[in-house]
């Protein structure tokens, strides 16, 4: 029973939403269910946040490696909870938006979280460089195709690409790197994207059906509960 009821719920809800697409009075049910999901996700955060606290408290109390950083994590977590849930330092008081400009909560986001996010994101520049280098060293045919295409597109988006092939006569202008880059984006790239996207569409159909029919059910755990 512990597995049968959830399997029935999945089947019932899944089937209902598939048919809702074809029945106008039920067309908005998908949006309604998404709303339910948003609410459930916040309740679930009590489990996630609780886990975060437990992990770091354990580290702290058992003096595990790097336990001092757990103090910082916990302090930061509680600090934001108190600032945000009680709207302390919010110029508009409890009725204002929690992310109102000038509130301490939003200031923490702007002055602390924002630089951290931006820098982490910016690290991608270094990682793109190292990945390109690795692709450059790869000696198989697939990697070479990938690299050549990437190189043409990259050059095509810079003035250098135009400069390099400016000598190509107008009648062969398609061979000028910027034009070649446009052609790659519009033709072979489009073909590859289409094949991938069509495949994904069918893959989702098949996997969703396995979930709805209860063939995939590992996420529901074991029978013992």
């Amino acid at each position: 029973m512990r597995r049968q009821i959830p399997l029935f719920i999945t089947f019932f809800v899944g089937t209902l939403l598939i048919f809702s697409v074809f029945i106008p009075p039920m067309e908005t049910w998908g949006e309604d269910f998404t709303l339910f999901f948003d609410i459930i996700a916040v309740f679930a955060f009590f489990l996630g946040g609780g886990n975060l606290m437990r992990v770091h408290f354990n580290k702290l109390t058992r003096r595990k490696q790097d336990w001092t950083y757990s103090i910082v994590t916990l302090a930061g977590f509680f600090f934001m909870l108190v600032l945000g849930l009680l709207k302390i330092g919010n110029p508009g008081g409890i009725a204002a938006s929690v992310t109102a400009e000038g509130s301490w909560f939003q200031t923490m986001f702007n002055d602390v979280l924002n630089p951290l996010q931006s820098t982490m994101y910016a690290l991608l520049a270094f990682f793109v460089a190292s990945a390109s280098y690795r692709a450059f060293r790869a000696k198989n045919r697939e990697a070479t195709i990938l690299l050549v295409a990437a190189f043409i597109i990259l050059l095509g988006r810079t003035p250098f690409g135009m400069y390099l092939t400016a000598w190509v006569p107008e009648s062969f202008s398609v061979l000028q790197i910027p034009n070649l880059a446009i052609w790659i984006m519009n033709s072979p790239n489009l073909a590859g994207q289409r094949a991938i996207i069509i495949g994904i569409g069918l893959g989702v159909v098949s996997m969703s059906m396995r979930l709805i029919l209860g063939i995939e059910r590992t996420y529901l755990g074991d029978d013992s509960g």
């Binding site: 948003d38 996700a41 916040v42 955060f45 946040g49 975060l52 950083y69 757990s70 910082v72 994590t73 916990l74 302090a75 930061g76 977590f77 509680f78 600090f79 934001m80 909870l81 600032l83 945000g84 849930l85 938006s97 929690v98 992310t99 909560f105 923490m108 986001f109 602390v112 979280l113 951290l116 982490m120």
Partner: peptide
Amino acid sequence: AIFVGLSAGYWFVVLFW
């Protein structure tokens, strides 16, 4: 540590409201 602690709190508060 700062990033994880603050951002976890930030997102819970935003999702809650």
